[in-house]
Design a protein around this nucleic acid. Structure first.
Lengths: 259, 259
DNA sequence: GTCAATAATCTCATATTACAAGAAAATTTA
DNA sequence: TAAATTTTCTTGTAATATGAGATTATTGAC
């Protein structure tokens, strides 16, 4: 999963990679141990990352992520075309339903909420903005996976088959692939209480240039708000929104191109 | 202001530095021009940053900041001791007054809001989370500057004197220093409509180990809510909160130490 | 305030590897 | 499918990142 750093540039970046949800604070000693760098080398790296604000440290405290991250996040919010193009649809869907609408990016082999909006009171998601979500549970993961090109999809499922088995999607690669067929056909995915009990999730893929999805547009609604034909209605709305976001991304590219 | 990169590690980081509020999207061609790197070198850097999710690009679009930033911001929110220690005081002050309370970090030569909470309706700040604020205007900048050690303070003011003059704080270094004396004496800074007309700002410094402040705790209130003796009352409350946050940071250090 | 202990940085010779030019491969558009 | 563009791969060479140990700052205790 984590690629080994092969050159000094990647070794520098690798320092940031060890800051995870499980381990948010590291002492230099621990980092030397974990990363296998010599003392001067590690301190050289830490100095660079600290000077640039990626890391902070206080006396006798380990290092933690620094304010540069906050600044970059602000800039990202202003520049990410997915967030910019998706915002009107977050508003639209939350106005129409008592729900939470999300923009979720596919990155590396993770999916990750980059923006959301909510019109329901019970809106505390266990996967807020920035927290990687499980790929194998819920509509969002499936809405993306289902549209991956086969040559990427099959190895991915093979590699993570245990997850799909645990989630009850299927026991073999073929079974999982089969389960994804209907998603592909309908153009959106639905999940009943897979991530949070009592919550139904809808999701549809967002594309950039063409073949492979880069993100998903999703809506989560309390199960008892979704009766009968509402399921299909909401599913189609989510699919429509995802399609229009894809189109908006394409038109942005075109704008750039014609400058 | 922007330090020139002297080695390959810093040159790699320098790529991220060109993504600013003025310029959120860059093509490889533009980056070559701006940074002066050769084509293969630039692409090598871009590949690393893109693979790690720091940058994204879509066909025919320039590069923009990538989802890794969002993920790191999530981790930072969970790990930054300033944010964690300050949160209860954001709640406390916003409950007591109809105001916006902020935690602002001093980093590099910038100040930057890392968390805020608001109990007033008109809460749209022109400096939201992550956007660097001007040092020379408003209570926050002064609350930090006033407590810097002289040997750091004097060169800083000399270098940025034009800003202080423009803000009407003082025309000479000595005049600016004099203006900061009362802040130092009172332990907090007040500003009447300096950043936003009709809004009064209060701010007090937060310290880590001792000498130099690392952040500021601030409250902004509509001017007409602050009558007579309320000014001093709020100022003292802000100072108290900042002091308690400093103490909380120290106790966290102690906790680490005794492990 | 001074001193001991710890933490962070510096020096320097050496091996590593980052670099640029051009070529090749992979994408994307027509 | 072909042409154009964008991105990555070679390669020899020069530049520089590295680690061991020594040195200097910082911090905590008295």
């Amino acid at each position: 999963m984590i690629k080994k750093a092969v050159n000094s540039l990647e070794r520098l970046q690798a320092v940031l990679d060890v800051f995870t949800e499980d381990r948010l604070e590291w002492t230099p000693e621990e980092l030397m141990e974990e990363l296998g760098y010599s003392r001067p080398t590690l301190y050289r790296y830490l100095k660079i990352l600290k000077d640039r604000g990626f890391l902070t440290s206080m006396p006798n405290t380990g290092f933690t992520l620094g304010p540069r991250v906050v600044e970059m996040d602000y800039l990202l919010r202003k520049s990410d075309n997915l967030i910019l193009s998706g915002a009107p649809y977050l508003r639209k869907l939350t106005e129409r339903y008592e729900c939470t609408a999300l923009l979720v990016r596919w990155y590396g082999e993770k999916i990750l909420c980059v923006d959301s909006l909510s019109s329901s009171r019970e809106a505390i998601s266990s996967y807020p903005r920035g927290r990687p979500m499980p790929l194998s549970r819920g509509a969002i993961g499936r809405s993306i996976i289902a549209f991956l090109p086969r040559r990427n999809l099959v190895p991915l499922i093979k590699r993570t088959l245990h997850e799909w088995q645990a989630a009850g999607v299927g026991d073999t690669v073929d079974a999982v692939l089969n389960g994804l067929k209907s998603v592909r056909k309908k153009g959106y995915a639905v999940a009943y209480g897979e991530v949070t009990p009592g919550v139904t999730g809808f999701a549809a893929p967002i594309f950039d240039a063409g073949q492979s999805p880069i993100a998903s547009f999703s809506v989560t609604i309390a199960q008892d708000q979704v009766r009968g034909s509402a399921v299909e209605e909401i599913g189609l709305e989510v699919r429509l929104a995802a399609g229009e976001i894809s189109a908006a991304l394409a038109s942005h590219r075109h704008k750039i191109l014609s400058q």
